[in-house]
Structures are given as C-alpha cells and as structure tokens.
C-alpha cells in the first residue's frame, strides 16, 4: 500500500514538473486537441486508473476484514472487558466470578480469544496494537473483538478513544500464558 501510494505521488509530481518544463512549441489548440486531452487526462488518468486501483484495494481490504472476523470455533476462549474512566475490568467465561483489574488481563497463548467489550460510563476503545486492531467500548453495546497471541508473554494495551483527563494513563496489559499457565490461572482460588 505504501509503495503504491509513493508510486502515485511520484507520478503526479513528475507530471506537474513536466507541465512547467515543456516549452510552448509543442502546444496546438483546436477541438481535436481538446478531445484528445480529455481522453488522456480525464478518461484515462482521471477515471480508469483510480477505478482499477481502488477496486482492487477495496476487495483486498474486505477479504482481510472477513478473515479477522470472530467466528465460532471449538477452542475459542471468551474474556469480558469492561472499560470505565480510567481502568479496565476483565472477566472470564471459564472462571465465573473471577475478575481482574487493569493489570493484567490474562489469556491463553495460541488460542483465539473473543473479547466482549463494553463500557460502564463513557465511550472507550480497546486496543492491543500487537494483537489486533481497536474496537470501541460503547455503553449499552457489547462488541466482540477476536485476538490471538501466538507466543506467551505480556502485550501492552491502551484505551484509544479520548475519555477525559486520565486518558493518557489509561493502559492495561494482556498476559498470555501457555496451556499449563492458563489452566493454573483458571484453577486459582477467587481472591
């Protein structure tokens, strides 16, 4: 995408530069020349070129978007995330009654996790940059985000929708365990 964008930018720059470089000698007036100019500039570069590029790009984006959708599967784990000013509370479908505060949310590694995101007060956004895109927490709605951590470890998470003075410090951590660690986490006594 970046390479394509750069190529288009360079094309436009070169065309502009040439417009000033060309001497006046080559220019001819008349309706035929006008017709030809319209065909090249408007129908060719203005219509056909963007239509083709954009059709490809849109289709690509939608295919990728389809792949990222949360679909039901056998080993999907569900974690609830409730945002509030300026903390997150996480609940676990596999360990009812268990809730952890903002540090850390826990999830298994190597298994897809559906995060059910909602908000207790204002609109928040749940974002773990290394695991998935962001999804908003809207009061009165529950949004499902599919994340999957390939490796055990800690992943930094952020609130990503301005929500008042404490916004800059609105962070959390997702701790991904291996299978044994996840079982141990679920088996822990509820404090």
């Amino acid at each position: 995408m970046f390479a394509g964008a750069s190529a288009i930018l360079v094309l436009v720059m070169v065309l502009l530069w040439l417009a000033f470089r060309r001497g006046p000698a080559v220019r001819k007036g008349g309706p035929a020349a006008e017709e030809r100019d319209e065909r090249i500039w408007i129908k060719g570069l203005g219509l056909a070129f963007p239509l083709a590029t954009l059709a490809a790009l849109t289709a690509y984006g939608l295919v990728v978007g389809e792949r990222l959708l949360p679909r039901p599967g056998p080993d999907v784990v569900t974690v609830g995330a409730e945002g509030r000013q300026w903390a997150w509370t996480f609940t676990y479908a596999d360990a009812p009654g268990r809730a952890t505060g903002g540090h850390p949310a826990t999830s298994p590694a190597g298994r897809p996790v559906d995060v059910a995101i909602t908000s207790a007060d204002v609109i928040q956004s749940f974002w773990v940059p290394r695991l998935a895109g962001k999804l908003d927490a809207v009061p009165g709605h529950v949004n499902i985000l599919r994340i999957e951590a390939w490796e055990p470890g800690d992943y930094a998470g952020l609130g990503a929708e301005f929500n008042g003075p404490g916004y800059a410090g609105h962070r959390f951590t997702v701790r991904a365990h291996d299978a044994a660690g996840w079982e141990a986490f679920l088996a822990e006594e509820t404090p």
Binding site: L15, A19, R27, D37, W41, I42, L47
Partner: peptide
C-alpha cells in the same frame, strides 16, 4: 482524481 488530472491536463495544455 478526475479533477486533479483535469487540472494537470490544463497545465499541460497552457503555458
């Protein structure tokens, strides 16, 4: 895009 290229075309057409 149509407008941008119409403008660049205008630059090419004139001086």
């Amino acid at each position: 895009g149509v407008q941008i290229f119409a403008w660049i075309g205008t630059l090419w057409k004139g001086e």
